[in-house]
Amino acid sequence: MTRALNAQWHNLAFSAFIFREILDNPMEDETPQSRLKQIGMMSILYIMHQGHQALTISNITETTKLTRTGVAETVDPLVKRGLLTETFVKNSMGRGKARQFEIAPEIFEKIRSFQPT
């Protein structure tokens, strides 16, 4: 029972943290629509993260049905905000480079610091 409550608390804390970070800190020339897209994208990425899926452009496009450009337009501001980290890995064919993302570890550290004991 306690474990289930901890998982629910963690999910709620993550959502609330992302919501506040994005809405309270608008970037220059950013529209409200862009901020809402970022909140939605972070929710999807968190679910993918919980499911141990690699956060690559290809996987995100497969999940969201957005174009690669559409994904990049939403993910790039998240990287700029420091909510995601970006690395370049070999693509699935092993020839080129692919962008891979990770939810910034600092987010989980901040959330943990607020967790009730």
Results as ranks from 00 to 15, higher is better:
Asn25Cys: 09
His10Thr: 02
Val79Gly: 07
Leu45Val: 01
Asn11Trp: 07
Leu5Asp: 11
Glu102Asp: 04
Ala72Trp: 05
Glu102Cys: 02
Glu28Gly: 06
Arg20Leu: 13
Pro116Leu: 04
His10Trp: 00
Thr63Phe: 06
Glu30Arg: 11
His10Val: 00
Val89Gly: 02
Val79Cys: 10
Ser58Phe: 04
Arg35Phe: 07
Arg99Tyr: 07
Lys97Arg: 13
Asp24Met: 12
Arg112Cys: 03
Gly82Ser: 06
His10Gln: 02
Ser34Lys: 15
Gln8Phe: 07
Asp76Asn: 13
Asn59Met: 12
Leu84Arg: 12
Pro77Ile: 00
Thr2Asp: 12
Thr85Arg: 08
Lys110Glu: 05
Val89Ser: 02
Asn11Ala: 07
Glu30Cys: 03
Tyr46Cys: 05
Asn11Tyr: 09
Pro77Met: 02
His52Ser: 14
Asp24Pro: 04
Gly70Thr: 06
Val71Glu: 06
Leu78Val: 00
Leu12Ile: 11
Arg112Asp: 03
Arg81Glu: 01
Ile111Phe: 04
Met93Cys: 13
Leu55His: 06
Thr67Asn: 12
Pro105Gly: 05
Ala98Glu: 13
Pro105Gln: 08
Gly96Val: 06
Thr2Glu: 09
Leu66Gly: 11
Gln53Val: 15
Glu28Leu: 12
Ile22Cys: 10
Thr87Gln: 12
Thr117Ala: 09
Trp9Asp: 07
Ile57Gln: 15
Asp24Ser: 06
Arg99Met: 03
Ala98Arg: 09
Leu83Gly: 03
Thr74Phe: 01
Gln53Trp: 15
Thr2Val: 04
Met42Ile: 14
Glu109Phe: 05
Glu28Asn: 11
Met1Lys: 13
Arg81Asp: 00
Pro116Phe: 03
Lys90Phe: 12
Arg35Gly: 04
Phe114Ile: 12
Arg95Thr: 14
Thr63Ala: 10
Pro105Trp: 07
Arg35Ala: 01
Leu12Tyr: 13
Leu5Tyr: 11
Asp24Asn: 08
Ala98His: 07
Ser43Lys: 06
His52Ala: 12
Phe19Pro: 01
Phe17Ile: 01
Asn91Ala: 01
Gly94Gln: 15
Arg20Pro: 13
Lys110Asp: 07
Ile107His: 03
Asp76Glu: 14
Thr64His: 02
Asn59Leu: 08
Asn91Arg: 02
Gly51Ser: 04
Arg68Glu: 09
Glu28Thr: 13
